[in-house]
Write a protein that binds this DNA or RNA. Structure first.
Lengths: 187, 187
DNA sequence: ACCTGAACACCGTTCAAGT
DNA sequence: ACCTGAACACCGTTCAAGT
């Protein structure tokens, strides 16, 4: 499958080398024939990204097994998210940095995957803070997870220069713990 | 100046069209001559990014004038950061998405600018929570600002799909307020 | 039905040669 | 001292033509 070659190329050579021609070469075909399986390069990247999101989702689901306490589950999700980003930096960045040109045409499936992910967080928050109304829960899920995402991206791109070991993990722990503590203190 | 042309090109046509050839064309020179002023395309992007960070910094400094309360200052910084990102999405993204190939060779000036920015946050946190030790302050500045950054990037790339108007601003307010509240509740 | 190969309009980068 | 212009090795994309 062409997708496999694309992913290998991406991890081995980086995003700039993920070209239609290189993918074709790697599977022993000619450049033009790739356009029978992908609409264009955007489409190729999009399919790689869907795969990446599916893998991430599977790992997140996996990490929830066995954890009972909602706060522990949220911490586990945060750690897992960060760990995935650190394990697959190139693929993970591609998900968020790739711009589709004809917006909202193609990425409907992608948006659903991202939404589903926020709902995972929202469900845990609803559980631990049952007094929050649905709007507040949505908001909390988005700002908390936006936060974890930001730490992950700054860490991966080397913009943090933090001290200690596993510095980004400490930041995620800090953000989740402090935010949840703030949630408990009513407004 | 070539830099001006590069920035105009970037805002008008997007990051993919920011090519050495297009910049040269726009200022009436030939492609090769650009290499007398920039080392290569990476260097060109780096210089654009430095300029962007300088502008952002100036706006952040400006927003602090007049605000006395540290919490209000942190909120103002968050809103200003987000507003800048929304006003210059392409340039702002380029700062964080551009990868220099020969790492830590070139971007020393860039790193200092980013560090200086975290220190701006850390100073406000130190002021409002004087009982925190220096490590905790650094950590708080990084996780809180990583968080604001994450919301900004998800918002700009259309991955939030939040309700209400100025949705990202509401998230930044929520994150900052809740995090600071969490900071006040000792561990 | 499936793939090739050539073509077109682009890139980044280098470097002799011109003024 | 400064710039050009051609060259090289790449891109994405299309599409006649081959099997």
């Amino acid at each position: 499958m062409a997708l496999g070659a694309a992913i290998a190329l991406l991890e081995e050579e980086g995003p700039d080398r993920l070209t239609t021609r290189a993918v074709a070469r790697r599977i022993g075909y000619t450049a033009g024939s790739l356009y029978f399986v992908f609409r264009n390069r955007d489409d190729l990247v999009l399919r790689v990204n869907e795969r990446t999101l599916d893998e991430l989702r599977a790992e997140l689901d996996g990490v929830l097994d066995g954890q009972k306490d909602s706060d522990a589950r949220l911490h586990a999700l945060g750690r897992c998210y960060l760990a995935f980003a650190e394990r697959h930096p190139t693929r993970w960045r591609l998900v968020f940095e790739h711009d589709v040109l004809d917006v909202d045409q193609v990425p409907e499936a992608m948006r659903r995957k991202i939404d589903a992910f926020f709902q995972l967080i929202a469900a845990e928050i609803a559980r631990r803070s049952p007094s929050l109304d649905p709007d507040a829960i949505r908001r909390a899920a988005q700002s908390l997870w936006g936060g974890v995402h930001g730490i992950a991206i700054l860490s991966i791109t080397g913009k943090l220069r933090a001290g200690g070991e596993r510095p980004a993990e400490a930041l995620v722990e800090d953000l989740v713990a402090t935010y949840l503590r703030g949630l408990d203190r009513a407004r």
